[in-house]
C-alpha cells in the first residue's frame, strides 16, 4: 500500500511557481532519496507533505486517505482533523530544532506523553531503547546544547521515531553538520533503511543516496525530471539535466 501519495501537487509562493505538477508515491518499506539543485523545490515538497505548507492544487493522501479535497465550489480544502495525519509521519530538520529547555529524554518523551497520551513509563522505556539503538546511551539527562551536532541530529531522529510514524521525512539531515560528523548520522539512517523504515530523504550526499535508496528522485525547477533505481539514475542517467547536475557534483 502507498504510505504517501502526492498527485499533481502545485505550490506557488506569490508569483514563484515552486512545485509544478509533482506526483510521488512512496510504498511501505521504501526508501526514496530526493536530489537536485538548490531552489529546485525539494524542501517545499517535504513541507507540503508534512503539512507545514498548504498546497494550491493536487491531492495529498496518507495510507489511502485523502488529506485534501475539492469543495463544491472546486476549491482545494484540507480535512478537519489534520492531527490524525500528523501521527502518520515524522520530520527530521536540517537544523535539528530540538527543544533546548528539555533534556534529551524529555525531548523524546514529551510528545508521546502529551500528544499520543502514552503512559509515562512506557514512553521512557521506549525512549531508552531507541537511544541505545542510536548509540546515545547515557545521554538522556543531557541538554541539547551539551551535545555535538551529530548527537543532536540523532536525538532528533529518535524524537521523531518515538512517535512511531509510518513514514519519516528528512530534509538534508547532515547539511548543518561538520563533515566529520555526517557519518554517524548517515549510519543511523542506513540502519533504519535496513529495518525497512519508510523514508523520504532530501540529501546532497550522493554516495549515501546511492547506497541507501530503493529509488532516487531528481528534482529541478519544480518538476521531477527523472526517477528510478539508484543504479539507473546514477549509472545510466537518462536526461541531460540530471547528468549535468551529477557531473557538477563530482567536481
Amino acid at each position: 500500500m502507498n504510505v504517501l501519495k502526492m498527485q499533481n501537487i502545485q505550490k506557488s509562493f506569490g508569483e514563484n511557481h515552486v512545485l509544478k505538477d509533482i506526483s510521488l508515491e512512496v510504498n511501505k518499506g521504501e526508501v526514496v532519496s530526493v536530489i537536485g539543485p538548490s531552489g529546485g523545490g525539494k524542501s517545499t515538497l517535504l513541507r507540503c507533505a508534512t503539512l507545514l505548507e498548504t498546497i494550491d492544487g493536487g491531492v495529498l493522501s496518507y495510507m489511502g486517505e485523502d488529506v485534501t479535497y475539492l469543495n463544491e465550489k472546486g476549491r482545494l480544502c484540507y480535512v478537519k482533523n489534520l492531527n490524525k495525519f500528523r501521527k502518520i509521519f515524522g520530520l527530521v530538520f536540517q537544523s535539528f530544532n530540538l527543544f533546548p529547555h528539555y533534556s534529551v529524554l524529555k525531548n523524546i518523551t514529551d510528545a508521546p506523553i502529551k500528544v499520543l497520551k502514552m503512559n509515562k513509563d512506557e514512553a521512557v522505556e521506549r525512549a531508552m531503547t531507541l537511544l541505545k539503538k542510536m548509540g546515545l546511551e547515557g545521554k538522556e539527562k543531557m541538554y541539547p546544547c551539551e551535545l555535538s551536532g551529530g548527537m543532536q541530529q540523532r536525538v532528533s531522529i529518535v524524537r521523531a521515531l518515538a512517535m512511531n510514524p509510518e513514514i519519516l521525512f528528512f530534509d538534508e539531515p547532515t547539511s548543518a553538520l561538520d563533515p566529520e560528523l555526517t557519518g554517524e548520522v548517515l549510519k543511523v539512517i542506513k540502519q533504519l533503511a535496513d529495518e525497512k523504515m519508510t523514508m523520504v530523504i532530501v540529501t546532497h550526499e550522493m554516495p549515501f543516496a546511492r547506497a541507501v535508496s530503493d529509488r532516487v528522485v531528481f528534482m529541478d525547477g519544480g518538476v521531477i525530471v527523472e526517477q528510478g533505481r539508484p543504479e539507473e539514475v546514477f549509472g545510466n542517467t537518462r536526461t541531460e539535466r540530471t547528468r549535468k547536475f551529477l557531473q557538477n557534483y563530482q567536481k
Binding site: 500528523r86 537544523s95 527543544f99 500528544v115 499520543l116 512517535m163
Partner: peptide, 13 residues
C-alpha cells in the same frame, strides 16, 4: 525561531 514552532506542529502539539 520558526523551527521550534514547526518541530512542535509536526509532532502534533
Amino acid at each position: 525561531s520558526t523551527g521550534q514552532y514547526e518541530a512542535a506542529t509536526v509532532l502534533g502539539y
